[in-house]
Structures are given as structure tokens and as C-alpha cells.
Amino acid sequence: MVDPTPIPVAETALAVTGLTVSYAALPVVEGINARFPKGTMTAIIGPNGAGKSTLLKAALGLVPAVAGEVRAFGQPVAKAMPRIAYVPQRAAVDWEFPARVIDVVQMGLYRKTGLLGRMTPALKAQAVDCLARLGMADFAQRQIGALSGGQQQRVFLARALAQEADLMILDEPFAGVDAATESAIITVLHALRAEGKTVIAVHHDLATVSAYFDRVLLLNRRVIAEGPTTTTFRRATVAEAYGNTLLTSIPA
């Protein structure tokens, strides 16, 4: 008897099949098919209203989908959720909330502590380490409202790091942050990719796509193109997504 040969499928971190989301009766994204291979870093780009945030939220089950299936690491997303971390676009929290920076990062450890488990010294050290990776260790005791927008963004990324997820999903991580924060965030994301983690980010700055990401998903309600940055991020496809041709900075 011959051993069954393993079928060589590229390992996929996130697989979206036929995903459609509507607000009221209007479809926001339609029939999305996308594969995000393990260990890659994908930029989701497209104009305002293209449904980029909606695609991420629907993939995570935060907004209901009309149709379609989403699987992470071969499992339904709800089941794989412990392996996924999500950083929303400028977290919509009450910035006056009585929480210090370190308290917010420790919330990323909830799956390890549970309802009643103790926040052990090892877990506390891990939270501080996540802050340190983003250059925020000195701010651990600050109340979160006392931070700048870029610093707040770094704290929420540190909270996601604390989850030790295999798939990191970010919604415009660089929106409205200064150069120092952008460089701190991209260093961490590239380190994650080097560890074999998968990164998916909604991205707006077309000038940095090639430097930051190895894959792109061009979106305008439907998938316009998907693939490696070098072959897919081309003037013609980007113009098709954005509906104009004023994109001279992008290779033809």
C-alpha cells in the first residue's frame, strides 16, 4: 500500500470566499475572493468607500455578511479567533477611561488569564516587553488619554502583540501618525513577518506600498487585482481601482 501523497496546497492564513456585505440594501463589498498566504504581508488598497474596513470587519465577524465564507488557518474564523489579533482604525474608545497604558496592553492577555486568573509577574513582563517593542515602555503608567494620537496607536498595536497571534489584521495603522510612529510600527510588522506571522493591513499611502508590503489586494467593492506587489501593484491596475490615471509615481 502506498502512503497517500500530501496535496501541496500553499498554506493559507486567511481565505475569503464569495464574501458580500450590505449596509441597508446597498452592497458595500461584493463577491470577494481572496487568499492571504502564511508569512506574507498584504496591503489592502483602494479609494474611500471601496469597502476596505468593511471587508476586514466582516472577515472577523464584527459586521454580518450577506453571503460568503471566511476561514482562518483552515478553520471557521470564530474558531480560529484566538490566533487572530485586530487593530482597529483609531480605536473608538473613551479616552477618559480610567486605564493606564499598561492596563490596556494587559487586556491583550485576557485569553491567558481568563476571568479570574492571576496577572503573574511573567505575564506582566510580557506586557511591558510588548510596549518596549514599540518604544512605549516609558509611558506604561500614563493614563491613555494623556498620549498623542500616534502613541495611542502604538499602545493598541502593543495590545495586539500581547495576544501573540499568528494573523495580525490592522485597519490603517499609519493614518495620522508621525514618521517616528510609522517607523516603529513598520519595524514591528516586518519583525512579525520574519517570525512567520501573517500581516494584513488597510493602507492609504501608495508611495510606501512597495517598500512595506510584499502583496497587495486592490479593492473597489470587488477585488480588482490580487498578488505580489512587484507584479500586481502596477499603474494600470491601481488606476482601475481608483478610477483615474493620475498615478505617475507607480511603475507602469
Binding site: L60, L62, M81, I84, Y86, P88, A91, V93, D94, F97, A99, V104, M107, G108, Y110, R111, R159, Q163
Partner: peptide, 9 residues
């Protein structure tokens, strides 16, 4: 603090 994140956790 953050119901969306709490749900994901």
C-alpha cells in the same frame, strides 16, 4: 473600555 476588542478576546 472596548466592547469590540472584548468580543474578539
Amino acid at each position: 473600555f472596548d466592547p469590540g476588542h472584548a468580543r474578539l478576546m
